[in-house]
């Protein structure tokens, strides 16, 4: 174990997988000579060279397609989007091609590819650089969607994603790149996709959070415990698809209350999906309506105060927990 930032944990995962499997390569804008726009790929080009770590022109659709074709032919590409906002340019390849190839080829061509990069808000980068897109990608059968919240999870999940035989949407968070945590250094350390993690045990209310909202939910849980004596359980699904609904449902059966926190928009979102599934599987256990906290239903504003108002925070979570606990 070593204490690493999430950035370095991701870097370690990439490096280990490049070493382990000759078929793995990294491709994207500024991933090689520039060391990555967010330095996730730092040092990899120097170590592995032009063949394995490849700078592309600014052609998201084109290099996503090259990844899909290379995966079809048996390689295992890791395609970096400088931010997931730019993946929308490549959505045709991700949704119409990668997600459907195995099915429409009658099981002949699987696409073992990872698309990764930062998702969600950053620091005042406004409307076109702040979107959280997990709900969109999770809507399509054929794609797995992963969202780590800690350095160890980031490493273990990225390694599993690279070893997975399906296309994986791997959503990082710029604001989490610098967060530190203990990370196993065993090169065989992986975390299976589709398994949630209870980040904090509690008995009175369940908070489901993912990615950036996990540390915020943990802070809120501490505050609520201290100020109101309410014990919150924080569940991090870690993968949105496949979703480990059982862990969430089991927690709700224990606490009888549920608050879901997300950085994406609410309408047709992941929280809406979890709400529906909990209603189907644990309706009789609920002592209060499920509460969702999401980003404001507006493009992300630039001004510091407006940006803060648009996003989930500790105060909003505390208020929601109080509401479902009738405090």
């Amino acid at each position: 174990m070593a204490e690493l930032t999430m950035r370095d944990a991701l870097n370690q995962a990439l490096r280990e997988e490049l070493l382990r499997d000759e078929r793995v390569f990294i491709m994207g804008e500024e991933v090689a000579q520039y060391d990555g726009a967010y330095k996730v790929t730092r040092g990899l080009w120097r170590e592995f060279g032009d063949k394995r770590v490849i700078d592309t022109p600014i052609s998201e659709l084109g290099f996503a397609a090259i990844g899909v074709g290379a995966a079809m032919a048996g390689l295992r590409p890791v395609i970096e989007f400088m931010t997931w906002n730019f993946s929308i340019l490549a959505a045709d390849q991700i949704i119409n091609h990668a997600a459907k190839m195995l099915y429409m080829s009658g099981g002949q061509f699987n696409i073992p590819i990872v698309f990764r990069g930062p998702n969600g808000s950053a620091y005042q980068v406004s409307s076109q650089h702040s979107q959280a897109l997990e709900a969109m990608y999770a809507n399509f059968p054929g794609l797995k969607v992963v969202m780590p919240s800690t350095p160890a999870d980031a490493k273990g999940l990225l390694k599993s994603a690279i070893r997975d035989d399906n296309p994986v949407i791997f959503l990082e968070q710029e604001k989490l790149y610098g967060t530190k945590g203990e990370v196993p250094d065993d090169p065989d350390f992986t975390i299976p996709l589709g398994v949630a993690d209870v980040k904090r045990q509690g008995k009175d209310c369940t908070i489901v959070a993912r990615s950036l909202t996990v540390p915020i939910a943990l802070q809120a849980a501490e505050k609520i415990e201290k100020e109101y004596g309410v014990s919150c359980e924080v569940v991090d699904p870690r993968t949105i698809k496949p979703l480990d609904i059982d862990t969430i449902v089991n927690s709700v059966k224990k606490t009888n209350r549920l608050v879901i926190v997300e950085e994406s928009h609410q309408f047709c979102g992941v929280a809406a999906e979890i709400t529906a599934q909990v209603n189907e599987k644990a309706f009789d256990y609920l002592d209060a309506p499920i509460k969702r906290i999401s980003s404001a239903e507006a493009p992300m504003p630039y001004a510091r105060n407006l940006e803060a108002a648009a996003l989930p925070d500790v105060a909003k979570i505390v208020a929601a927990v109080k509401e479902v606990c009738y405090l």
Binding site: A64, A65, I66, V68, G69, M72, G74, D92, Q93, H97
Partner: peptide
């Protein structure tokens, strides 16, 4: 779409 995917096949070759 297959122009890009085909380019990826050649990349793999």
């Amino acid at each position: 779409g297959q122009i890009g995917v085909g380019t990826g096949l050649a990349f793999a070759q």
